[in-house]
C-alpha cells in the first residue's frame, strides 16, 4: 500500500513539531527516517498511526485518509521506547495483540507461533516480559507489530538495545519484509540506514532537508570528488605543487600523520584520476595508492541538521 503525506503539520502550542512536510512511500520500499532528537520523526509516525490527530495537511493510504480509524488495521507499529505489558508472559501478550488486531481465531495460534519463530523468541515465550533482556523485549515489540501481517510497518527505532548479531538479523528481517510491504523506520544509527533502506529522508526542526537514496544524497552534498593518493617521489613538495597545477584540481592537502599521502579535491564534475596517473608516469614517480574518498553519511547529516 502506498502512503502519501501532504503538507503535514502538527504544533504543540506555538512550536511546530512537524512543519508542512510532504513525501510518498510505495509498496516494496523501505524508507529511513533520519533526524536529530526532537526533529519530528516520532510525531510524524504517531500521526500516521492515528495516535495523534493531524493539525493540517493529510496522510492517505492508497487514497484513503488515515482520519478513517479503520485504516489502523493495515498498520503495524513499534512505538519508541517499545512499551509492553511487563507482567504478561510473551505468548499471552502476543495472543492478546493478535485478538485485538482481529486475527481470525482459527489462524491465531499459527500466527503467534510464526511470529515466535520469526523473531527468535522460542526459548523465552513463557517468560514474563519484565524478565527479558532489552534485545528480547525489542523482538517482542517487533513480533506484536507484525502479528496481523499488516501491509504497512512503522518502526520507531527498531534496533535500539540489540547486540550486533541481533541488529544484523533484524535488518535482514526488515529487508525481507520490505520487498512486499511498505516500511518506514526511524533511527539514529547512520550505517543502519544504508544497510536497510532504499531511500533516506532527513528531517530537521519539522522540515524535510533531504530526500533520496544514500548515493544521491552524497552527490548533492558534495558534487566534487575527493581522492587520497600516495606517491613516492624524491621531493614531496614538488609533488604537491605539480598536482595542484593540474587542470580540475581544486585543493591539495597533506594528510596529517602519514608521510607521502595527499588528499586531492577536484572541481565539481571533473575527474582527475587520469591526470594524476599521467603526471606520475611523466615524472617517473611511483603511485602506490589512489583511493576515492566517499563523503560519509554522518557528514551529510551534520551539514544538513546543524546550523
Amino acid at each position: 500500500m502506498n502512503i502519501r503525506i501532504e503538507n503535514l503539520t502538527k504544533s504543540y502550542g506555538d512550536q511546530k513539531a512537524v512543519d508542512s512536510i510532504s513525501f510518498e512511500v510505495k509498496t516494496g520500499e523501505v524508507l529511513g527516517f533520519l533526524g536529530p532528537n526532537g526533529a519530528g520523526k516520532s510525531t510524524t509516525m504517531k500521526m500516521i498511526t492515528h495516535y495523534l490527530n493531524i493539525d493540517a495537511g493529510n496522510i492517505t493510504i492508497d487514497g484513503r485518509s488515515v482520519r478513517n480509524t479503520d485504516m489502523k488495521k493495515h498498520i503495524g507499529y513499534l512505538p519508541e521506547h517499545n512499551p509492553l505489558y511487563e507482567d504478561m508472559p510473551v505468548i499471552d501478550y502476543l495472543r492478546f495483540v493478535a485478538e485485538l488486531q482481529g486475527v481470525d481465531a482459527v489462524k491465531l495460534d499459527d500466527r503467534v507461533k510464526d511470529m515466535v519463530r520469526l523473531c527468535g523468541l522460542n526459548d523465552e515465550k513463557h517468560k514474563k516480559i519484565n524478565e527479558l533482556s532489552k534485545g528480547y523485549r525489542q523482538r517482542v515489540g517487533l513480533a506484536q507489530a507484525m502479528i496481523h501481517d499488516p501491509e504497512i510497518l512503522i518502526l520507531d527505532e527498531p534496533t535500539t538495545g540489540l547486540d550486533p548479531n541481533q541488529i544484523v538479523e533484524i535488518r535482514e528481517l526488515i529487508r525481507t519484509l520490505g520487498n512486499s510491504k511498505t516500511v518506514i523506520l526511524s533511527t539514529h544509527i547512520l550505517p543502519e540506514v544504508e544497510a536497510t533502506c532504499d531511500r533516506i529522508l532527513i528531517i530537521n526542526k519539522g522540515k524535510i532537508v533531504a530526500d533520496g537514496t544514500a548515493e544521491t544524497l552524497r552527490k548533492t552534498a558534495s558534487g566534487s570528488q575527493v581522492l587520497r593518493v600516495k606517491i613516492q617521489a624524491p621531493s614531496q613538495d614538488e609533488v604537491k605543487e605539480s598536482v595542484s597545477q593540474l587542470a580540475g584540481v581544486a585543493l591539495v592537502e597533506k594528510v596529517e600523520g602519514s608521510e607521502n599521502r595527499l588528499e586531492i579535491q577536484s572541481h565539481v564534475d571533473q575527474n582527475v584520476n587520469e591526470a594524476i596517473f599521467r603526471l606520475c608516469v611523466d615524472k617517473n614517480w611511483v603511485l602506490t595508492e589512489m583511493v576515492p574518498f566517499e563523503t560519509k553519511l554522518e557528514d551529510i547529516f551534520r551539514d544538513l541538521t546543524m546550523n
Binding site: Y51, D70, K72, Y77, P79, P83, L84, Y85, Q101, Q144
Partner: peptide, 14 residues
Amino acid sequence: RSGTIELLLTKNVS
C-alpha cells in the same frame, strides 16, 4: 505511565 496506551490505541481500538 508505561506508554502502553500508545500500543493499545494504535491497534484496531478506539
